[in-house]
Each structure stands twice: as C-alpha cells, then as structure tokens.
Design a protein around this nucleic acid. Structure first.
Length: 185
DNA sequence: TTACCGATCGCA
DNA sequence: GCGATCGGTAAA
C-alpha cells in the first residue's frame, strides 16, 4: 500500500476531500493498529469559508491550517469530541479536510465510526495528536490500496451554522458508515 | 479575567 | 429535543 504524502495533500481542499474517499486511514498506537476506509469527508477553506476556523484570519488554534499540508489538525469541539482534519493547500494558504465517516477495517471492534467525534474516539485521537505530520513513522497516515469501485456523492455540509450551502461534503454512495446527523440528506 | 459558543453525541 | 462540558477567542 502506498502512503499518501505531501504531493497528495498540497492541493485544493475540495479536491483532497473528494480523493480521500476510499483511501485507508491508519493509526498505530502502542503496538495496536487501527484501520478504516474513508467514506465521508468535508472540505474547509480559508477566508472565503464562513464555517472554517480560518475565515477570520490567523489565530493560535488555526495556524496549523495555514501551515504545511499533510499535517493533522485535531481539536476539541463542544467540550467532548475531537475532530480529525488533514491540512491541505500549499504552505501559507488555509485549508483542511474533516473526516466524518470511516468504515472499520481493523482494530476497531464494534466501535461506531460514522461521525467525526466517534472516529476520533475509536482511533484514540486527542490533542496530543494535533499538528502531527501524517507519515508512517508517526503511526498516523493515509494509504492508497487501489480501491475505487464506488460512486461519490457531493452535497452541502452538515452540522454547522455557517456556509452550509457550499457543496463541500463528499461521501461514498450507499455506505453504511456515512454519518447520520439530524435530518440528513 | 470573564463570558460566550461551537465542524457533536446519546439519551428522552 | 436537550444537556453535557471544554478551550479558543474577543471584549473589558
């Protein structure tokens, strides 16, 4: 399996969000390996995107979104849930892709992974994992295994109050592991 | 230093 | 439908 690196993430967020579908998210921690197939993502942009943390310019929290692509951006939301993002775009341009749904492949038992908070929980991601370069040596990365027999659906984003109309959410049609939030699409 | 509130989830 | 509960951010 080929590990996705700098070149993959150094592109527009919407493109990375779309192409990350079907890829494998790998996390190694204390000898255990967690793996899941990405089935749902959302892109977050910079100043143009009212829902993005980066829309109001650079701050301490979102500075990683302006940094090097292929780095994790994990933060606590609502005081309970961590969200796993990957930084995209070249250095200096804000952009990230949020992982919203994953199909369990290995090491996840019966844990639900159909939602951003659940994914972080199942993969044991926390603030320690923020700003980590996604690479094999860090035990946190995405890999490509040639899986591509699926249909991609593009819709407005969900779970946010600003910029919902922007069609930046992508998911694999028919997957059981796409997140289900309120009146879904 | 304080007040506000959010890219959520699970239970009623 | 609602409450849980934390940390970043802006205002004072």
């Amino acid at each position: 399996m080929k590990v996705l690196g700098y070149d993959f993430f150094c592109r527009p967020a919407r493109l990375v969000a779309k192409e990350l579908l079907g890829k494998i998210f790998v996390r190694k921690l204390r000898g255990k390996t967690f793996m899941g197939r990405v089935v749902e993502t959302e892109a977050y942009l910079g100043s143009k995107d009212p829902a993005s943390h980066a829309c109001k310019g650079l701050t301490k929290r979102n500075s990683v979104m302006f940094g090097k692509p292929g780095v994790s951006y994990i933060y606590l939301c609502y005081g309970f849930h961590y969200m796993m993002n990957v930084v995209t775009e070249k250095e200096g341009v804000a952009g990230a892709v949020l992982l919203r749904g994953v199909e369990p492949l290995k090491g996840l038992g019966n844990k639900a992974t159909n939602g951003p908070g659940k994914i972080a929980g199942a993969f044991k991601l926390g603030k320690k994992d923020n700003r980590l370069l996604l690479a094999k040596k860090n035990g946190l990365y995405f890999a490509e295994d040639g899986y591509k027999s699926f249909k991609i659906v593009k819709t407005g984003r969900i779970g946010i109050k600003q910029g919902q109309d922007l069609p930046l959410r992508y998911y694999i049609e028919g997957s059981k592991y796409v997140s289900k939030l309120k009146s879904n699409y």
